Amino acid sequence: MTKKKAISTEQIHHPYKPPEGWNAVPVPVAKASTVLFKDAADLHDYKPRDGKGYRYGLHGTPTSYTLAARLCTLEGAAHCLLTPSGLAAITLVSMAFLRPGDEVLVPDNAYGQNRYLTESFLPHWGVTHRFYDPLDAEGFKSLLGEKTKLVWLEAAGSITLEFPDLAGLVAACRERGVLTALDNTWGAGVAFQPFELGIDISMQALTKYPSGGADVLMGAVYTRDQALHDKLNWTHEHLGYGVGSNDVELVLRGLPTLELRYRAQDATTRGLAAWMQSRPEVSRVLHPALPGSPGHEHWLQCSSAGAACLFSAVFKPQYGMAEVDAFVDALQLFGIGYSWAGPMSLAVPYDMSRSRSLPLPYEEGVIVRFAIGLEAEADLRADIEQALVALLK
């Protein structure tokens, strides 16, 4: 008679294995730090990553490899690496390709955390930087020098939503052999395909559209070129970047509705942005699909299929930050908070004079960036209208 093992031993080494053949719409969630090998020879055998083998949970599970593969399809990429946040994805690219003595060029309207990373962190590694006007491809050419190793692109720009001259900027970089990296969080793989434009590396904050629930922090870096991917993958491994399987599950759940949500939020945003142009309190509405908005002609050239869920209103000079803050506080359906592409609409006031190096391409004034959620357009319009009364008090 086989001696009965202790309860704890039996629960860890139980002989039952589920039968093969299970299949369902949701992707099964595989969680692991330790990955078991079938024998010592298997342990010693090198296991390639990218969904071809497993060594340790930090580097990938069936669940995370499934998400990476589906995201490649979304972006038109060949390779995808997952990171703990969008900022981590930006950091991965900069750490992989910049060395002491190198220079990076960043658009003046870049995501604030990329700007902070460039100004405050990279100099400690001996990396210099310059900010450029994303609407001036001709002037940009003169900034490209021997030390320039990486150019960041962002379409559309953070907060002020200028749409860059992507064709002109990318052409200038390719002519000089300079690597390009695009923050494609706004486009989300729906508005345009970055690699079709000649861009080398794309990244997204999966926190936004791919998740859609305002409940996940994650990022992704995409490439088509194997050599670029290998360099990113090496850096990714040595930085110890990993993502939790439960978060991966939530992003996988959001992907099937991504395009539906993108289109719905895009339509509501365009309606509200066009209406906001008629308001006497506002001097300018910034939205790539609006004629007259900075970079509108560039948006038409490459991404007229989509315009995301963001627009910004520049309030007339007589309304200072205190008055605009009162307007934001009076909104009832808009949360006050960062991020976007979730179900709830958001509004955040900004004083752009504190976060730019170059002149703004529009008249000065306090800005409110609106991130439109999934509420009804009529309800959001009525809420903005009632809150505008606060400006006059």
Rank of each mutant, 00 (worst) to 15 (best):
Q113C: 11
P123I: 03
R130Q: 01
P123M: 13
R99S: 13
L117Q: 10
R115C: 11
A89W: 10
S94M: 11
V106L: 08
N114R: 02
T83Y: 15
A89D: 04
D102C: 02
W125G: 07
L92K: 04
A89V: 05
N109S: 12
V106P: 02
S120C: 09
R99M: 07
R130L: 02
I90D: 07
G101T: 10
Y111A: 02
T83A: 15
G112N: 13
H124L: 15
Y116K: 05
F121Y: 13
G86C: 04
T118H: 08
N114M: 12
L105K: 01
D108W: 03
A96W: 15
P100D: 10
P100H: 06
L122H: 06
P107E: 03
V106S: 05
V104W: 06
N114I: 01
Y111C: 00
G126A: 12
G112P: 11
N114S: 11
F121M: 12
Y111L: 09
V104P: 04
V93T: 09
S85T: 05
D108Y: 05
F121G: 12
L87H: 14
G112E: 10
S94Y: 12
G101R: 00
F121S: 10
Y111I: 05
S85G: 05
G101H: 07
H124F: 12
R115L: 07
R115M: 15
E103V: 06
H129W: 10
P100C: 12
L98A: 02
G101C: 06
E103C: 02
P107C: 01
H129R: 06
Y111R: 07
E103S: 04
L117R: 12
P107K: 05
T128W: 02
G86H: 09
G101D: 02
H129M: 01
M95R: 15
A89L: 08
L98F: 08
S94G: 14
G86D: 12
A89S: 14
T83P: 14
A96I: 09
A110Q: 12
T128K: 13
T118R: 03
G112C: 13
L117M: 02
I90C: 15
H129V: 02
G126P: 04
L105Y: 11
T91C: 08
P107W: 09
P100N: 03
W125S: 11
V127M: 04
R99K: 14
T83M: 13
S85M: 07
